[in-house]
């Protein structure tokens, strides 16, 4: 599967057909710090992603105060 990472934007190939939680562990990403998006829908840690999927992992942390 393809994973789109942000800041900077890049794309990585990673094994699919498993839970989002497992993908995030592989990428060393804390699930509370990102949105996981597939085809315009949010996924939770417990959703399964397939080998043919393209998933965006979007960080939610903002550094600057408004």
């Amino acid at each position: 599967m393809k994973v789109v990472l942000r800041n900077p934007d890049r794309e990585v190939d990673i094994a699919g057909d498993r839970l989002v939680r497992e993908v995030l562990i592989d990428l060393a990403i804390d699930p509370d710090t990102v949105l996981v998006i597939r085809a315009g829908e949010l996924l939770t840690r417990h959703d399964r992603v397939g080998d043919a999927d393209k998933v965006e992992v979007r960080p939610v942390i903002s550094g600057g105060a408004v």
Binding site: R6, L35, L42, P59, V60, I61, G63, G64, A65
Partner: peptide, 28 residues
């Protein structure tokens, strides 16, 4: 932050995802 990001996404708000380029190393 997770909740405000999820709300913005679900509301279809096209916000800036990229981080301010000057913020790296910010104490906060």
């Amino acid at each position: 932050e997770l909740e405000t990001a999820a709300y913005a996404f679900l509301r279809g708000i096209d916000y800036v995802v990229e981080e301010c380029p000057l913020v790296a190393g910010n104490t906060q």
